[in-house]
Nucleic acid binder design. Structure first.
Lengths: 212, 212
DNA sequence: CCTACCGATCGGTAGG
DNA sequence: CCTACCGATCGGTAGG
């Protein structure tokens, strides 16, 4: 009777867990394959057949694990949003002057861009392929992300460490510079991601001009 | 006979000139309409029917004035390349210290991005829709453009005006910051293009940190 | 009976 | 300058 109970209660649980694990594993595989292709060619130019072929399957598998083509793109955006938000949490942890924290933020952002270059390409090129609602969410998250850095910048001005100026424009300038490597960075080049991130943090904070 | 000669020689010229003017005018119209739509939705998402409808025509007109869909995109890229190259010619004209010239270059680039925002969107998002050859030309032009600014930067280091650092990375940092407004700038916002360009030039050259 | 998956084909729409 | 139409290819779904 105990055995019976177990057979009825735990076995389905184990099966269910295994099934869910497999589901999540294959979904991750789909997102990885899709990210590679979409980054290289653009969302519209990649067919569901391309994505499944990249994994050695036919597209029915993709449609078994994903509702439709849009869900693939949306889950890529969700992964990106989460990664950057987590990175910012880490960089903004207490410790150091505003200048030091800003250097951490700049480096974190630039490194994320270069280490997940495919994501950055997709994020900055294929946002307009999302639905209205999804785009609104992405825009809202981006605004929150920028706002947190603007607040840091405003603190730095108050502390007398940053030049007085509009925090919005200042952060747009910083983030823009840090985003751009997605268009040109190659990990095989003579500059490592760390080289670039450090050089950018240095130049952006100290300026191009030699201190007078 | 003189009249005859004129009728035979000049009339076709006049007709030819008028016809060519009309051709160029409509081609410009097509490029303008296409730029608006492609910037908003992406090249793959815009149909030739969309472009012709935007002008109040059917697509046969587009195919009369353009060889195919690709030619539209390519001619947009040619316009962009030429505009930026001309802007750089102007900004690099002799006059002023390296610091002053660099400020001119930064402002010119940022202003071009904001004043032709649709071009910047297309240039940075739809380059992968060009043919292999076209992409090679675009890449080559971009490299030349950046190289000219790198040379200016190297001069500024020699003159003791810029902090010593890799000119390639330094210019990537500057240009990246100047490009980014294409993703967020709105001419209706509280910042004018001139505001943004000046603030960026200031921040990029002097740095975020207050001079010690 | 369910699952995971295949070969084939659907309705629609693209560039030309 | 329009209507009508092509070869092809798309995203998504059927039966087995």
């Amino acid at each position: 009777m105990d055995m019976e109970a177990q057979r009825e209660s735990s076995k389905p649980n184990i099966r269910g867990r295994i099934k869910q694990q497999k589901t999540e594993l294959i979904q991750e595989e789909i997102l990885d394959a899709a990210s590679r292709l979409i980054a290289a060619r653009g969302f519209r130019a990649v067919t569901v057949d391309d994505i499944s072929a990249e994994m050695g399957f036919t597209k029915s598998i993709v449609y078994y694990y994903m509702k439709n083509k849009n869900e693939i793109l949306w889950r890529i955006f969700e992964r990106i949003d989460k990664t950057y938000a987590n990175g910012l949490d880490e960089a903004l942890k207490p410790g150091g002057s505003p200048t030091e924290v800003l250097a951490r933020v700049v480096k974190m952002h630039a490194l994320n861009v270069m280490m997940h270059q495919e994501w950055a390409m997709i994020y900055n090129r294929d946002e307009n392929e999302l639905t209205e609602d999804q785009r609104a969410t992405v825009t809202s998250n981006r605004r929150k992300y920028n706002k947190r850095i603007q607040d840091l910048y405003a603190d730095g001005i108050k502390a007398g460490e940053f030049r007085d100026g509009d925090p919005f424009l200042a952060v747009c300038c910083l983030i823009g510079a840090c985003n751009w490597p997605y268009t040109w960075f190659r990990s095989s080049s003579k500059y490592s991601a760390e080289d670039v991130a450090s050089a950018f943090a240095d130049q952006l904070i100290k300026g191009a001009a030699k201190a007078a």
